[in-house]
Design a protein around this nucleic acid. Structure first.
Length: 423
RNA sequence: GGAGAGAUGGCAGAGCGGUUGAAUGCACCGGUCUUGAAAACCGGCGUACCGUGAGGUAUCGGGGGUUCGAAUCCCUCUCUCUCCGCCA
């Protein structure tokens, strides 16, 4: 959620920024500002009436104490009209209040200066490409066929037990999952991230805190009976650790990591994009989350990008980094870099990580702040990224490292898998 | 699932209709003292919003009500804890 103060102070910058998302926010911003003005007027008036009433109440109390019943009753009579006025203004202020919140919820984050304008993934900018497409002297097989050939993943079995999008990993396939999780977690730990095992189910307040609610309600599995949500990413429980927290000083840099399964309804997805591991309802992911001083979030983002690059390089994968355009950047994000790995067998790029900075967009809702040196409270910046999401990594490992003799495990992973080839 | 208890400032914990934004203790910050530290003493110490400012308003789990006046009374919701049952 954008801060109303920011809209007051930087109205034009907000509108110009949002244009990069192909949103003309002029109308929303204007009505926001006019309601805000009305809200402030009514509020000031309301408060002066409340002050008057408080004073009267005190006087009446004193009069009663002194036994001056008559005078007290005279004063009492005076309060009636004031109370009526107060109730009226209160209703007005509350009304404006909800209108403002409603409008604020509609506005996505303002993109960072370096975010290009654009409508879709076609307008994203490739900022870096590392490695090159692997040449095969045989026909590369897509991962869903390899999974069957080596008996690593059973999609049909998942359908039987649960439904589409819930694969069953078997044998070396299961072990590969576990190895990747360990590898990612240990790399994160080496980079200074503290590991957490958070709940996989969160309450409504947490959903609002990171911005999944109210906009993306339909994306999460909802447990009606207990009013709880299955997490779509570890970002939600990890970031919410710091909901309603005021850090005591300016000197902080919080780095958290966690492995969790992630649950996504993916309502409306279909077609070849969902084949095999490409899009699932349940998948594993190691997430990294950072809470930073505003002056440090730019540097933090770079560090996170470097971290993800390191992972992909150790896995020997050919990848590219995209700076997402306004239209493709997530609602809450100010700047997002996507990592894509090229799948030679599918002949396309697969998104394996998304690293974003949210600036104060989440911390406004989270009420996550810190104390400045002169004892003021200020909002923190939040960032997060996948490091990494497993399914497409598994897919591209299988597809890119396939040989006629089997699937070769990258060196960095062997101490975790305990085997160096799947055959 | 059954029964009961509770929710107050960073923590602990008073208050149970009228200078209570809230005692007291601990923690924390500043000062005095000290070579330094500890102790002792003095002072400060929640958050948000409105107002150029002086200042004001709100806030004792959430919402509603009674009252001139509510942390205190009533209703309701949520959450937590304890015991019993069930159970990894």
């Amino acid at each position: 959620m954008l801060e109303i103060q920011r809209i007051r102070n930087e109205k034009d910058a907000v509108i110009t920024g949002l244009k990069k998302r192909n949103i003309d926010a002029t109308e929303t911003v204007e009505s926001l500002l006019s309601i805000d003005q009305k809200w402030r007027n009514s509020k000031t008036e309301l408060e002066s009436i409340s002050a008057e009433l408080n004073l009267l109440a005190k006087e009446i109390g004193d009069l009663f104490k002194q036994g001056k019943q008559d005078e007290a009753n005279t004063s009492k009579a005076k309060t009636a009209t004031l109370k009526e006025k107060e109730a009226l203004l209160k209703a007005e202020v509350d009304g404006f209040d909800t209108e403002i919140i409603q409008l604020l919820y509609q506005l996505p984050n303002v993109p960072n200066d370096i975010v290009p304008a654009g409508k879709s993934e076609l307008d994203n900018i490739t900022v870096e490409e590392v490695g090159s497409k692997r040449e095969f002297d045989f026909t590369a097989v897509p991962h869903w066929d390899l999974a069957k050939k080596y008996d690593l993943i059973d999609f049909e079995l998942g359908v039987k037990i649960t439904g589409a999008g819930f694969p069953v990993y078997k044998g070396k396939g299961a072990k590969l999952q576990r190895a990747l999780i360990s590898f990612f977690l240990e790399e994160a730990e080496k980079a200074g991230y503290q590991e957490f095992i958070p709940p996989l189910v969160v309450n409504e307040a947490s959903g609002y805190g990171t911005g999944q609610l109210p906009d993306k309600e339909g994306q999460m599995y909802y447990i009606n009976e207990d009013d709880l949500y299955l997490i779509p990413t570890a970002e939600v429980p990890l970031t919410n650790i710091y909901r309603d927290v005021i850090l005591p000083s300016e000197d902080f840099s919080i780095k958290m990591t966690g492995y969790t399964p992630c649950f996504r309804r993916e309502a409306g997805s279909y077609g070849k994009d969902v084949r095999g591991l490409n899009r699932l309802h349940q998948f594993d992911k190691v997430e990294i989350v950072r809470i930073e001083h505003p002056s440090n979030s730019e540097k933090a983002l770079i560090e996170m990008i470097d971290h993800v690059k390191g992972l992909l390089e150790k896995l020997g994968l050919h990848y590219r980094i995209l700076r997402l355009c306004g239209g493709d950047t997530g609602f809450a994000s100010a700047l997002t870099y996507d990592f894509e790995v090229y799948s030679a067998a599918q002949e396309k790029w697969l998104e394996v990580s998304s690293v974003s900075r949210f600036d104060t967009f989440q911390s406004t809702r989270l009420k996550l702040r810190f104390k400045t040196n002169d004892k003021k409270t200020q909002l923190c910046h939040t960032l997060n990224g996948s490091a990494l999401a497993l399914p497409r990594i598994v897919a591209s490992l299988m597809e890119n490292h396939q040989t006629p003799d089997g699937i070769v495990i990258p060196d960095a992973l062997r101490k975790y898998t305990g085997f160096d080839i799947i055959d």
